[in-house]
Simulated scan of single mutants.
Amino acid sequence: MATPAPFDPVREDMQTIAFYNLENLFDLADDRLTNDGDFLPGSKKKWTYKRYQNKLRKLGFAISNIGKEETGKHPSIVGLAEIENAKVIEDLISSQHLEQCNYSYVHYDSPDERGIDVALIYDDAHFEVLESASFSVHLRDANGTPDYTRDILLVSGLLDGIHVHVIVNHWSSRREGEKETEAKRLASSEKVGEIIRSLHQNFHDPKIVVIGDFNDEPHNISIRQLIHAHNLYNPMETLRSYSRGTVFYNGKWNVFDQIFLSINFLQSSQSDFEFFKAEIFDEDFLKLFNGPYRGSPFRTYVGKRYKGGYSDHFPVYSILKR
């Protein structure tokens, strides 16, 4: 395991909100209600206890270091995608590098066909959950049959005493083609819009953070319509380049993992949180270090082949400052 460089002293005036797609964090139990057959000891992927523990340890190391260079500490809030159930979250937050981080979690089972959900872990020394809810996105395939996907998670609480609302997403993939699946992501975008409208109806000038793996880029219509309709700020727009992104997909870099903030995070304040910066957490230890895909995420699997890495996505994060 890589050893990070020394960090500056802890910044009590800063907090990090992050998002990380964990690439199929499944336990070893056979859940007959989910499609977890690939992640069993007897499967072609040979998902074993040793491999599971290695993934937990590596993911925990990565999470514990997100934003640490700037703040001197682990993130206060982390949205997660591709987790199978509550057990894997409990195993993750009790793993070697996270057991001292005071993490608790919010999770709801969703009807996704792959058996994966989103969740939120949070340092309960800095974030107090007041309420949470899960919202389904109702989709249909071309033949009219229901297409079950991940629910959208809303968690509202106090971040060092400031009321914030965090919306965690994992929108439909592009596996059947970008255009062929665009309507599904547009439906998720509309659902997030409904949640934001509800927050504005129930709270005065709510502070909203939207995080997730959107399987679309900042310039795609699902993202643009959400940003423009609800006066959000997307700091991820400028981070993609020819040689950098959050996921290496079909031979090119994409910024599918993003963080949006309500515009009130850009207002100057003496006591409230303000947006400080946003970044892709693409440290060298998360990357392949040789071969034709050098510099891309060091994955756990490529197809059925075990590689022993972290995830096929890089995390993203935003730092708030008071």
Rank of each mutant, 00 (worst) to 15 (best):
L33A: 12
S311V: 03
K207Q: 09
L158V: 05
E84H: 14
H107F: 09
V155W: 05
E194I: 08
P111S: 11
G157I: 11
R57N: 05
K179N: 12
C101S: 10
D112Q: 13
K191R: 15
P297V: 09
A183R: 12
R57V: 02
L56W: 08
D284L: 12
S189T: 04
D272T: 05
V209S: 01
F256V: 07
H170T: 12
P146A: 14
K55Q: 06
V78P: 03
V164E: 00
Y49H: 09
L226K: 10
F203H: 14
G193H: 03
V129L: 06
N234C: 11
T3L: 10
Y293A: 11
I83M: 06
P297A: 07
L40E: 14
P6S: 15
A5E: 14
R150I: 13
G115Y: 11
S318E: 10
V10C: 02
G251C: 05
L226C: 08
T16Q: 09
A278P: 06
K207M: 08
L186M: 14
L28W: 05
K287N: 07
Y301D: 10
F289M: 09
L59T: 01
D8S: 09
D112S: 13
P41F: 07
R244C: 05
Y249M: 04
P315C: 00
I227H: 02
I263G: 04
